[in-house]
Design a protein around this nucleic acid. Structure first.
Lengths: 197, 197, 197, 197
DNA sequence: CATGAATGAGGCTTCATTCAT
DNA sequence: CATGAATGAAGCCTCATTCAT
């Protein structure tokens, strides 16, 4: 998933450059926002601007690659917790960790939002990877009675994105998570018409 | 508060144009994001580019004016509910309405985030206006036992921003609000270590 | 000479406004250079921008009016010295005074340069007025043997512009005048090929 | 000194383009004044506007480069005459040549004025280079008795700027130089109070 | 007449993208 | 493949000038 779109395999040094660019882009976009220039990325990566465009023919494609990489990493983290002994801790712990990462890397929020919205062609694979892995954690937590039964992975993704956004803007706040987690645990009584517009 | 920075009052036509520009900016920024061009705004408003800059000498000032206007409107909405007979409905209803507006106007999310982060000089007045009005709704709902006692206006603002973001990206989702609202209502038992990183 | 181009006489208040604008322009252009905006002039004059353009339909025309006014003033000064008892002191004193004024008002330099170059339609009248008045001082100084006989008013105007420029840029410098004045007094011997290129 | 600010040497073609831009700027600024647009320069140079800004990131930096180049060229000319057999001819000849160049290139006048005013950081190096080289010519001419002893390089620079200005506006005039040169040669008698204001 | 709001051409600068070296 | 120079569209902003109030 970290290989280029074209079929041909890359030479070792090319692959190294690709990785350098991706890492630089991740950092630059995280720190200075996604409107940073590609030149900035190239500089940070220590390569020429041409190299950036050789590997990622478009700024958008570079941004997407960053998001995909982030999502893949998160998906991997989630997958590791799949068989944790404490499903509740696994689920909530993962959720917390993502949000606290998002506090410093705003790209994460975007990645989550993208992934949450659509299982489109673009981030599709990666996004659904995370959704699936998160789904497993969710399901196990639900079976253990730690999370209410009437929520699905899609809602969790959206909630994750929302909390990450709040954390990115207002700072990582445990208080927000407390509310969200209580909401996720609560066994709702009869519908009290919460969301009337 | 929607009048220009300079002391003198504007001529009727100038005021009309200012309003047109502001409305256009609100729409453009809502639909296409805050990085839309000022030319776009001028076109939408049906005025020359010079007129935009006469009223808002900087793109940033225009953006700020939009955010301030949004926040003021929300604050006014909240203020109207101040003495509602049903404090719980007032609070949750307001929350819902904001989020559903944010679903189409992403500028709202930004406004909330700005307002939530800082009560700085810039959006300061308006932001704190909303925070204050919302604080009243919150307090009354808490007194009525509809909202847990251990949250303050700051958390609500952050939560509002987060939910709005999610709604703006993933669509207005009642399911998310349900979770959040249950979290807000729940009387937390012993700390179950929810937010461990 | 300070009346508008059009034939009709102005109302008293209009005339007053014209004078205010002219004075403001003189000061603004002197201090901040001729690329200052007309708005700046209007502000300084305490009138609306429309008033500036009513009296001077073009920025260029305003600038020209400023230059003309300066030249007229200088011409008047020169004229007053016409019958001075000491022709040498009159001539050199006038020269010095102009240059020292130019040190703070760069518009003077421009005015002199314009006047020196051409007796065109534009500054023509005023420029030739100064040239003529200065010519009288020069002639009398030459008759008194204080200035060499082989220079004419045109040269003096050009020299004045050059010295004014130097003074405006490098500060009023008596040393430069000393050189120039010695050059003007000297009775040249046989041509020593001074200006070989 | 005509190389770019950054340390690295430029590729051959880049250097060629830089030179083209500089030459174009010199001509454009000479003919139409330093307020000509950078687009004009780009057009004249036959390159894209982006290329101009790649080499000179600011209009001001471009202007400065032009002035520095001019001053360097003049300094080099002066340096060549350092050991001329006829110090008087060397000094006055150089002076004449500069002024006659200024007649067509008004940028020279500005360069001289800048250099004369300040030996600041900006044009500093180049400006002082010319001042120094000119100082040598002056000293030798003074030792040969061709120039009065009571003037220094600073005065010469200012005089040069003033004469250049006059030449640029009123045309190259040998008559002005004659006066200035006679002033520079004259052995002043008792102070006749030349520069009284 | 005076005012100042409206206009839009034009200036400077940035940056994604292309292409010669 | 890597490099970085070249490109030009597009963005922000200024300002001389016009015109409705």
């Amino acid at each position: 998933m970290t290989s280029p779109a074209s079929g041909r395999p890359l030479r070792a040094d090319a692959l190294r450059n690709r990785a350098k660019v991706l890492a630089a882009a991740e950092e630059v976009f995280a720190v200075q926002g996604t409107s940073s220039s590609t030149e900035e990325v190239a500089r940070k990566a220590g390569v020429g601007i041409g190299t950036v465009f050789r590997h990622f023919p478009t700024k958008e494609s570079l941004l997407e690659a960053v998001l995909v990489a982030l999502l893949e990493r998160l998906a991997a983290e989630a997958a590791e917790l799949r068989s944790s002994a404490d499903p509740g801790a696994a689920f909530f712990g993962f959720f917390s960790r993502v949000v606290s990462q998002a506090a410093t890397k705003q790209a994460i929020t975007e990645a989550l939002a993208e992934a949450g919205i659509d299982a489109r062609e673009t981030t599709g694979g990666a996004g659904s990877g995370l959704t699936a892995a998160l789904g497993v954690l969710l399901e196990r937590a639900q079976e253990a009675g730690e999370v209410r039964a009437d929520v699905g992975p899609g809602e969790i993704m959206a909630l994750l994105a929302g909390m990450s956004y709040a954390a990115a803007r207002a700072g990582a706040r445990e208080d927000l998570l407390r509310i969200a987690f209580d909401g996720l645990r609560s066994r709702p009584g009869p519908d009290r018409g919460a969301a009337r517009g």
